[in-house]
């Protein structure tokens, strides 16, 4: 969890805003630090989290989370975190020889070429409110959904899946959904670009990490654009201009500052 990012977003660990869909994008840089932020933030805030990890292994997330002061293994044991390790599930599906396990595998749609209902059922079962739980609100984090496009899922099916996640987690359970779509613009991948645009029409907050146009810099790693309330109605009309900050990623935290005001410059 990066406290500076929290203060930029107006979030705190005491109260968690509910019913929000946050889209994370990046271009010319790696926006994964945002995923690590949200994972550790929601765990620390006491939310029940379902994490669908499609790009890295559990140990990777666990090591990063440990640096940020959160223990994923114990959160998993306590039932606060439900972790779907996409890399393992997919390998099991491809190379496993147990047909029974294949049916219960949340990623079995990759084999059958059907819709993403199995993955949706996994997510909604993991986050369904049950009696005797003291967790605050359910949160779904996906890292990164565009991987499924590369695995052969048509964009429309993926968007339907995201639609159902939103309808169930955000609206029905009053929880939050955070989803990362990696660099769509520079890859020239039309499907990815369509996915990113469709999701940004649906999201309440978009965090967009961009590499500097002037290239790599040791002191400033990129800039973060925050689009707020593109769809939230009512309260803050006319404030759809993005806020832009530059950031520097350090060992255990990220510092944010106004453009051109890096400590190395001043």
């Amino acid at each position: 969890m990066f406290p500076e990012l929290n203060s930029l977003l107006g979030a705190g660990t005491d109260t968690v805003e509910r019913g929000k869909f946050t889209l994370l994008c990046d271009s010319k840089t790696d926006g994964s630090f945002l995923v690590h932020h949200f994972l550790s933030y929601y765990l620390r805030a006491g939310c029940r989290v379902c994490f669908v990890a499609l790009v890295q292994s559990f140990s990777h997330y666990s090591i990063v989370a440990q640096k940020l002061g959160v223990n994923l293994s114990s959160a998993k044991d306590e039932g606060q975190l439900v972790f779907l390790e996409g890399l393992r599930s997919y390998t099991d599906l491809l190379f496993g020889d147990n047909p029974e396990a294949e049916v219960t595998n949340p990623l079995c749609f990759l084999r059958a070429g059907s819709d993403l209902k199995p993955l949706y059922s996994f997510v909604s079962a993991a986050l369904a409110p049950s009696a005797g739980q003291s967790w605050k609100c359910p949160v779904l984090i996906l890292d990164d959904v565009s991987v499924l496009l590369s695995l052969g899922v048509p964009p429309l099916q993926l968007l339907d899946f995201m639609h159902y996640c939103r309808a169930t987690v955000c609206t029905q359970y009053q929880g939050n959904v955070v989803c990362l779509v990696h660099g769509a613009e520079e890859s020239g991948d039309e499907e990815k670009e369509l996915l990113r645009r469709s999701l940004s029409h649906q999201s309440q907050v978009i965090l967009w990490a961009e590499g500097l146009s002037s290239g790599f810099c040791k002191e400033v790693h990129g800039q973060l654009k925050i689009f707020r309330g593109a769809v939230s109605s009512g309260k803050k009309r006319g404030q759809t201009q993005p806020e832009i900050y530059q950031y520097k990623i350090q060992d255990k935290h990220v510092t944010f500052f106004a453009r051109g005001l890096s400590a190395a410059v001043l």
Binding site: R197, H201, A230, R237, T240
Partner: peptide, 12 residues
């Protein structure tokens, strides 16, 4: 409209 600026408010 086009992302990220929504035309929903005009619709409303």
């Amino acid at each position: 409209d086009a992302a990220p600026h929504s035309g929903r408010e005009l619709l409303h």
